[in-house]
């Protein structure tokens, strides 16, 4: 039963990792951009949520209504003003610029909020639990998982059922020809980053309710997101969810064997999958 519990808790944790990963996957899929600052943007969203709860007196979940649009707008502006300038044949400039952005975000957060760990107060939600099949499940982890599934389903729907998604896929396929169709790729990329950071906002808030955070933890979240994307296969959103779950389960099982092994077990599973299936478990067909 303890092992079953570990697997279930790990699966729920995987929902959070899928949220970390979805935005990363989306922008890589649309514009082949690896955003080194992604983890720091998650942390930034958590701090924006914290400010919204303390300044406006909102519940953290209600803070989503403020933070999601704020991050989306920031994403669009960031893409149009800075990141579009770095995109081209050479993959180094976007890496360097997003690395620089990562440093800037960390230092700004340090100035604004200090290095002390903080947490959002979600009241009773934090400790609420229910029992199912002999297991005790936290309401918050279950909620996070459900949100993750909803976000992935929403992104999937956007990608394959809407004009915006069609524009994303066309631009990803062939930027020049997409431009011929009247799509301005700079605008399309801006919209993709806006959507990615909207998802990042959700990830940051769920993170900030679940655990305490400080300005330095972005790098770790980036790694988890990155690992989930690679395990699942680049460009496959449902694969990203599976990747998050595998990572989460590996970590909780590792922690069960020895508390010090949590992160190590996750990284090991990632490396093993990478060695056996370099394109991940569910690579997008044709790539």
């Amino acid at each position: 039963m303890e092992w079953v519990n570990a697997v279930v808790q790990g699966t729920l944790l995987g929902g959070l990792y899928a949220l970390f990963a979805a935005g990363l996957s989306l922008i890589f899929g649309v514009m082949r951009l690896v955003n080194i600052a992604h983890g720091d943007l998650i942390v930034l969203a958590a701090y924006l949520g914290l400010s919204a709860t303390t300044l406006l007196g909102l519940h953290p979940l209600a803070a989503l209504l403020v933070v999601v649009p704020a991050m989306a707008i920031m994403g669009y502006v960031l893409q149009r003003a800075i990141l579009n300038q770095t995109l081209g044949k050479d993959i180094l400039p976007p890496l360097l610029v997003t690395f620089g952005l990562s440093v800037i975000i960390q230092n700004t957060l340090l100035e604004a909020y200090s290095a002390d760990p903080q947490k959002m107060n979600a009241g009773a939600l934090e400790t609420a639990s229910f029992s199912a099949g002999g297991l005790s499940l936290g309401v918050l982890p279950v909620m996070t998982f459900v949100i993750a599934v909803g976000v992935i389903a929403g992104l999937q729907w956007t990608f394959y059922r809407t004009a915006l998604g069609r524009a994303f896929r066309a631009t990803s396929d062939n930027q020049e020809i997409a431009q011929l169709m009247g799509l301005n790729r700079r605008h399309i990329f801006g919209l993709a980053m806006a959507l990615a950071l909207a998802v990042t906002a959700i990830a940051g808030i769920m993170l900030g309710i679940r655990t305490s955070f400080d300005p330095s933890i972005g790098g770790g979240r980036l790694i988890f997101g990155f690992e989930a994307v690679i395990i699942g296969g680049l460009g496959n959103l449902w694969g990203t969810l599976v990747g998050g779950v595998i990572l989460g389960v590996a970590q909780t099982i590792g922690a069960k064997i020895d508390p010090g092994w949590q992160l190590l077990a996750g990284h090991l599973v990632f490396l093993i999958i990478l060695a056996v299936r370099p394109n991940g478990l569910f690579p997008r067909i044709g790539e």
Partner: peptide
């Protein structure tokens, strides 16, 4: 002008090699 601006004015190109979008 950029290609998207030219397209909006009413010029369309059938490109060499067809260049369809494989994901669509």
């Amino acid at each position: 002008l950029r290609a998207d601006e030219v397209a909006a004015k009413g010029i369309a190109l059938v490109p060499e090699g067809r260049q369809l979008f494989p994901s669509l």
